[in-house]
Amino acid sequence: QVALSRTQVCGILREELFQGDAFHQSDTHIFIIMGASGDLAKKKIYPTIWWLFRDGLLPENTFIVGYARSRLTVADIRKQSEPFFKATPEEKLKLEDFFARNSYVAGQYDDAASYQRLNSHMNALHLGSQANRLFYLALPPTVYEAVTKNIHESCMSQIGWNRIIVEKPFGRDLQSSDRLSNHISSLFREDQIYRIDHYLGKEMVQNLMVLRFANRIFGPIWNRDNIACVILTFKEPFGTEGRGGYFDEFGIIRDVMQNHLLQMLCLVAMEKPASTNSDDVRDEKVKVLKCISEVQANNVVLGQYVGNPDGEGEATKGYLDDPTVPRGSTTATFAAVVLYVENERWDGVPFILRCGKALNERKAEVRLQFHDVAGDIFHQQCKRNELVIRVQPNEAVYTKMMTKKPGMFFNPEESELDLTYGNRYKNVKLPDAYERLILDVFCGSQMHFVRSDELREAWRIFTPLLHQIELEKPKPIPYIYGSRGPTEADELMKRVGFQYEGTYKWVNPHKL
């Protein structure tokens, strides 16, 4: 086992960053958080920038500027975001240094004079007029057009580079997404736009490419001749908990499936790229999406959770019991969808996408189930092999396979070949997804960000279904809070070829 401390991990990262040409360590950078008073800024962006600063992973002359409508001070920003920093008493001095680099400007999102004030403020910072500028839009999409237009007109660096990070949702359907994309691309070049999907920053999602293309053993079996089906799962054990009003506007397909799960599907299904260059990788992902037809209604199961009468606390409440959810809402909190990649490698292999709230566990994984062994000599005792990439929690890679049961006879039983990170790298604290992705933006690497043509294809696949749901308002199937979801989803999976045995229990190697 390799035991690495946080300091050692960050030392390795620093070495990698400083050796590259793309990370300008000594240049002045300004990180501007648009929507600095909001939840995302408070819980994710400010803490992430602090962790990067604490670990010495930001360029040395980096300033952080918050911008929002609320009249706040840096002290206010500190008060609301610091509880999420997880700072230790030993880091007190470092924390003071961090907040000394912070400033805040209040202004409207659609007022040109406010942006001119913001620009004057940035120019007044040390070497601010020639600094590289990175704008993070932690804002609702309704203000994107006004904000990007004003940034472009008043706040661009004339000497350094300018980059803009856009948070999902990128529209509600193909038409609104196209409108937003066309607007942003009329102001910024594609190499300046970073559409963030934080799932692409997760260690195991990034590991998929290495697993596939750096190991000879997987190449020959990664196709329709050997793989019976692919299941991509995202499960949350909690409901909307008072935030249903926002969720109800989008629903589970827009929230998770059309982005996170579809991105994971691309990494499983794509061909080997010409290189690890950002556009070479994204070219292959677009090719996969172009091979997927629009979702067919007979390959869809929609569910909505109801309270568990035997549960406790939140578990007793259904989705419609959330006071922020519109009365009688038919918005799905669970969806199972089957897609097919219609190309030579994957023809006929079902890709089953499942996601839901208020389920029995927290889990995100990719599961490849292989065909049955031909010419069975073990009297149907063999179960199908599976390769599982567990994204969260407890990152893991393992192969479910058959071995001989101890004893006199040739009785096979299920076991696993474990390729888990935790076994080799004991207690290594890896940077989280937002840390990686923000560092990628500083480096100018777009590999783990969504390109406009990729986004367009993703919406093309799901828009007809979303429009049909909005028009017909089908009643989702009720499922109990804390269950596996509607049984109809299991029946759909069985119908397209997935075999669920229920006889195997994964042993978490992190707890051995």
Rank of each mutant, 00 (worst) to 15 (best):
D255Q: 14
D255F: 08
D255E: 15
V256G: 10
V256L: 14
M257I: 15
M257R: 00
M257E: 00
Q258K: 12
Q258T: 15
Q258F: 12
N259Q: 14
N259R: 12
H260D: 13
L261S: 02
L262C: 11
Q263A: 14
M264T: 13
C266F: 02
C266E: 10
V268G: 01
V268A: 03
M270F: 05
E271F: 00
E271C: 05
E271H: 05
K272C: 14
K272T: 09
P273W: 00
P273S: 02
A274D: 09
A274G: 09
A274T: 10
A274N: 12
S275M: 07
T276C: 06
N277G: 14
N277C: 06
N277T: 11
S278H: 14
S278Q: 10
D279E: 14
D280Q: 07
V281Q: 06
R282M: 03
E284R: 05
E284L: 05
K285I: 08
V286F: 15
V288R: 01
V288Q: 01
L289W: 01
L289T: 02
I292R: 00
S293P: 07
S293V: 05
E294W: 04
V295C: 11
N298P: 09
N299T: 08
V300M: 07
V301F: 02
V301P: 02
V301R: 04
G303S: 01
G303N: 02
Q304T: 10
Q304M: 03
Y305A: 02
Y305F: 12
Y305M: 01
G307N: 08
G307E: 06
N308Y: 12
N308F: 09
N308R: 15
P309F: 07
D310N: 13
G311C: 09
E312Q: 10
E312H: 07
E314L: 12
A315R: 09
T316M: 10
T316N: 05
T316E: 10
T316W: 05
G318V: 00
G318S: 06
G318F: 01
Y319I: 01
Y319W: 07
D321I: 04
D322Y: 07
P323L: 12
T324V: 07
T324G: 14
T324H: 12
V325L: 09
P326D: 06
R327D: 12
R327Y: 04
R327C: 11
S329I: 01
S329E: 03
S329M: 01
T331E: 12
T331W: 00
T333M: 00
F334W: 04
A336M: 06
V337P: 01
V338M: 07
Y340S: 06
Y340P: 01
V341M: 08
V341F: 00
V341R: 01
E342Y: 05
N343A: 04
E344I: 05
E344Q: 07
R345G: 04
R345S: 07
W346T: 02
D347L: 10
D347G: 15
G348T: 06
G348Y: 01
G348F: 01
V349A: 01
F351V: 02
I352Y: 06
L353H: 01
R354S: 12
C355W: 04
C355Y: 01
G356P: 00
K357I: 07
A358R: 02
A358N: 01
L359T: 03
L359C: 14
K363W: 05
K363D: 13
A364L: 09
E365P: 01
E365Y: 05
V366R: 01
Q369G: 02
Q369W: 05
F370C: 03
F370P: 00
H371C: 10
D372P: 09
D372M: 05
V373S: 15
D376C: 11
I377L: 15
I377C: 08
I377H: 04
F378D: 02
Q380T: 13
Q381T: 04
C382K: 11
K383M: 13
K383Q: 14
K383C: 14
K383D: 13
R384G: 05
R384Y: 08
N385E: 13
E386M: 04
L387H: 01
V388K: 12
V388C: 12
P393T: 04
N394D: 12
N394C: 12
N394M: 09
E395K: 15
E395C: 13
E395W: 13
Y398V: 15
Y398Q: 14
T399W: 14
M402V: 08
T403R: 15
T403C: 13
T403Q: 14
K404P: 15
K405P: 15
K405L: 13
P406M: 15
G407D: 11
G407A: 15
M408C: 15
F410T: 08
F410K: 06
F410D: 04
E413M: 11
E413T: 11
E414L: 09
E414N: 15
E416A: 11
D418W: 04
D418Q: 08
D418H: 12
D418Y: 11
L419V: 15
Y421L: 12
G422W: 10
G422E: 08
G422M: 06
N423A: 15
N423Y: 08
N423Q: 08
R424C: 05
Y425E: 15
K426S: 15
N427F: 13
V428K: 07
V428A: 10
K429D: 15
L430F: 09
L430I: 05
D432E: 12
A433S: 13
Y434H: 08
L437R: 15
D440W: 02
V441H: 00
C443K: 02
G444Q: 08
G444V: 00
Q446H: 02
Q446S: 08
Q446F: 02
M447G: 09
M447C: 04
M447N: 03
M447H: 15
M447Q: 12
H448V: 14
F449S: 02
F449Y: 05
V450A: 13
V450L: 15
V450S: 15
R451Y: 02
D453I: 01
D453G: 01
E454H: 13
E454W: 13
L455C: 04
L455G: 02
R456H: 13
E457S: 04
E457Q: 09
W459Y: 12
T463G: 15
T463M: 11
T463E: 14
P464R: 07
P464T: 10
L465C: 09
L466V: 12
L466P: 01
L466H: 15
Q468D: 13
I469P: 08
I469D: 07
E470M: 07
E472Q: 12
E472V: 09
K475V: 13
K475F: 05
P476L: 03
P476T: 10
I477S: 15
I477Q: 10
P478H: 11
I480P: 07
Y481H: 06
G482H: 05
G482T: 04
S483Q: 04
S483F: 03
S483T: 13
G485K: 02
G485D: 00
P486F: 02
T487K: 10
T487N: 11
T487P: 12
T487L: 13
D490K: 13
M493Y: 14
R495C: 07
R495I: 07
V496F: 10
V496T: 11
V496I: 11
G497V: 14
F498P: 14
F498T: 13
Q499H: 05
Y500L: 15
E501K: 08
T503C: 12
T503E: 10
K505C: 15
W506P: 15
W506Y: 15
W506K: 15
W506I: 14
W506V: 14
P509N: 14
P509F: 14
P509L: 10
H510Q: 14
K511M: 15
